[in-house]
Nucleic acid binder design. Structure first.
Lengths: 220, 220
DNA sequence: TGAGTAGTACTGACTGGTTGGTCCTAATGA
DNA sequence: TCATTAGGACCAACCAGTCAGTACTACTCA
């Protein structure tokens, strides 16, 4: 593994744990066993490191959660949404979830003080919301979901909820908060947003068969 | 205004903007026009300052949002919940809301790295959730709400949602996110959690008459 | 074939500034 | 008179970043 790789991986972990500004370059280098001058060989600045860590995190999240769920053409819209929620649940109940959501953490820390990073994170969240919206819209056209509420608003609501539950899980140090709130989202989808009789049956088993083991590396 | 008061007020603003660890004591003192030796006359440490700022923030939030809503005996349970949501909406759409929720921000920043502060924030969130739960439970007994879902779970869900929407509002710099997500909560409460025909009518006007102008000072 | 060159990755030492906190003395005002 | 405040100097540790140099590999060209 190259020095640059080691730096990126250790930086992602530390930034997730302590935050960007509270993680010094020397902290990262001590763990990665790389010298500071070598750091500056690969990165112009701490800021550039931050952007590259964020890019890596986005790719990791895509491979771990989005690709097998919202971007999985083998699933119908409802299954895609459920697979997404299950991906969030798996993440949030893992040891990693104790540190909160890496994106929410960064957004909270940096949005008010670093405009370029805020924009990158805003775009990331919007991309996620767009995918969710697309699923809800598709499900409406397939007669799965009710038509009352705009799909974009539902999608945003679901996304906000995932962020909120990560924060509470982190603050209370209680993984069951993820379970309870994902369950609430399921109930909301089945009991309110879905037409009667349009729920997927044996939802858990269906999704388990389709989901491949995600190929992720370094970020956990 | 005493020097200690000035410090606390400026510290609260700066910590809300930049975070605790990214706000130096000198930053605060420059704005408060107080010397460092006087700072250490009043506070043993930066950590003690942090706790006192948090305590002040909790009192402010109580007076601004909780007392006129969840702790307002003149309101029925549904009105109390709606008043709470309106308080959150007013906060979130104010210029202050651009910085996110002060409690959510601190929880995110400090929970993984500072156990005493995490505990204080956890207790704060739990107190809020308990009040919400109490309203839902009271509303169930008054026949307003359906009985299917545990009140504690609904309360937690609503609380998580408020945190999530604050984060998205901050990241997207869009106050309408608060409006859309509070509206979703209203719809969820009226369209799913409430018995048919049990909605409060002229909800907005009713609450407007009962809410006194909150006595808040310094933190905004 | 070997000197010279370029590119890549890496190093130790260093810079100027910042940070939370300490200590002491003196002044002010109720 | 004493609580409060100011001012100043200082400390060790920390911080992001700089600089000149080293080692190695591959390539070029006379």
């Amino acid at each position: 593994m190259s020095a640059k790789q080691k730096i990126l991986i250790e930086a992602a972990k530390l930034i997730h744990t302590k935050g960007f500004n509270n993680t010094s370059i020397q902290d990262i280098l001590d763990i990665a066993s790389v010298t500071k001058s070598n750091f500056y060989y690969h990165f112009d600045s701490k800021e550039q490191l931050g952007f590259e860590v964020l890019t890596g995190r986005m790719q990791w999240f895509y491979g771990r959660v989005i690709e097998p769920s919202l971007d999985n053409p083998a699933l119908n819209p409802l299954q895609r949404i459920y697979a997404f929620l299950d991906g969030i649940l798996a993440l949030g109940t893992s040891p990693l979830g104790e540190l909160g959501c890496p994106f929410g953490n960064l957004a909270q820390e940096m949005s008010a003080i670093h405009e370029p990073l805020r924009q990158a994170l805003s775009a990331f969240f919007r991309a996620g919301a767009d995918r969710l919206e697309h699923c809800f819209e598709e499900g409406k056209q397939a007669g799965i979901f009710r038509e009352q509420l705009p799909s974009s608003q539902i999608a945003e609501f679901v996304l906000a909820q995932t962020q909120g539950m990560f924060l509470l899980r982190k603050t209370h140090k209680d993984p069951q908060i993820m379970e309870r709130n994902i369950d609430m989202l399921h109930q909301l989808i089945e009991g309110w947003l879905t037409h009667e009789g349009k729920q997927a049956t044996n939802r858990q088993e269906e999704i388990r068969e389709t989901l491949p083991e995600p190929k992720t590396e370094g970020f956990e």
